[in-house]
């Protein structure tokens, strides 16, 4: 899940709504898509900007931990696949910034908010990728968790966001497969050292992956309004449970141990019982105290600032070219 703890505004009971707001809610309840030019409550617009913006930021910050291993990928094929994957993530960022722009906020404004610390990205990207097995783990667990969230968001009420999600989901399932494929090679055909590397990655990524779904429902203050607006379809805990149930057999196939002594199948609920992540750690990471928060933000800000001359150069050229064309048109008339 690439958007966590998005603050939702303006939760209202039906009787508190204006006529316009009630009509809007009725459209959502009928399953209609809201399009950019349609009337929408200010809270809906703001919440979506936060959620889509955070999601977009996660895609571009997410390039960093994986990009970290492109130059060290162990074979030419792995290098090519990883390059293609990271390129997809940048592409997802592009669709999502475009979806956010339909709500009246520019990409530059969103980036300024990210760089200024006023907007967040997913907590998961503040964890380091220390070994090649981490690249497999990011594909399998992190993209797996992202898919779990994004599949439901294909049905989200805002048309441009929903359409971006449909496209992104197709690519994400390839990403998850590439991650799992890396781990199959290491765990099923690898040396004891490679298996140990994979288990170490599992130990480090399991709980951060569970945190991607956000805080437990009992503490999730913003969910109700977002669900009423169908900006969010399932609760954090529902998605987390689905993720665990899906992932356990996959881990068993790889011969990896999930680092949770309490993990146990529960017949009555038809799912696994599992330990909650350390929520103190989650809130620390969100607050900026994860292992890589500083590096990730520095990398993004440096890229932006060092690239200022490049962007200005292109803009200046575009103005010159337009002026020359205008002059040529005048001369021709």
């Amino acid at each position: 899940m690439y958007a966590q703890m998005v603050k939702a505004e303006g939760a209202k009971a039906r009787e508190e709504m204006s006529e316009q707001e009630r009509a809007f809610q009725d459209r959502i309840d009928r399953g209609e898509k809201i399009e950019p030019k349609d009337w929408m409550p200010e809270g809906y617009r703001k919440t979506l900007i936060r959620q889509i913006g955070q999601h977009a930021h996660s895609e571009i910050v997410g390039q960093l931990p994986e990009g970290n291993w492109i130059t060290r990928a162990p074979t030419l094929e792995r290098k090519a696949i990883l390059l293609a994957k990271v390129q997809d993530e940048a592409g997802h960022g592009l669709y999502l910034y475009s979806a956010a722009e339909t709500l009246g906020v520019s990409r530059d404004e969103l980036l300024a908010a990210l760089h200024g610390g006023r907007m967040k990205y997913s907590s998961i990207f503040n964890y380091p990728t220390l070994t090649w097995a981490d690249i497999g783990m990011v594909g399998w667990l992190v993209d797996g968790a992202a898919i779990m969230n994004q599949v439901q968001l294909q049905k989200t009420s805002y048309g441009p966001y929903s359409r971006a999600m449909i496209r992104i989901c197709k690519e994400e399932s390839f990403h998850q497969r590439q991650g799992y494929d890396i781990l199959m090679k290491m765990c099923l055909q690898g040396t004891p050292e490679q298996k140990a590397m994979a288990q170490d990655a599992m130990n480090r990524f399991w709980y951060p992956a569970l945190m991607m779904f956000g805080p437990p429902d009992r503490d999730s203050v913003h969910s109700a309004q977002s669900m009423q607006w169908k900006i969010k379809i399932n609760t954090n805990d529902e998605l987390r449970q689905k993720f665990v149930d899906q992932t356990v057999p996959q881990a068993e196939y790889l011969g990896l141990t999930i680092p949770d002594p309490k993990l146990k199948w529960n017949d009555a609920k038809g799912g696994y019982d599992f330990s909650e992540p350390d929520w103190t750690e989650f809130f620390e990471v969100i607050a900026g105290n994860g292992p890589c928060n500083t590096e990730r933000m520095e990398a993004r800000i440096t890229a932006w600032e060092d690239g200022a001359w490049f962007r200005k150069g292109l803009m200046a050229h575009a103005r010159k070219r337009d002026a020359r064309r205008a002059a040529a048109r005048l001369a021709a008339e």
Binding site: L64, G67, T71, V86, A90, A299, A303, F310
Partner: peptide, 15 residues
């Protein structure tokens, strides 16, 4: 050029 991944001046250039 893959060293640039995630560090280009604008998203389109990263891609």
């Amino acid at each position: 050029i893959s060293e640039w991944c995630g560090h280009a001046p604008v998203l389109e250039e990263d891609i």
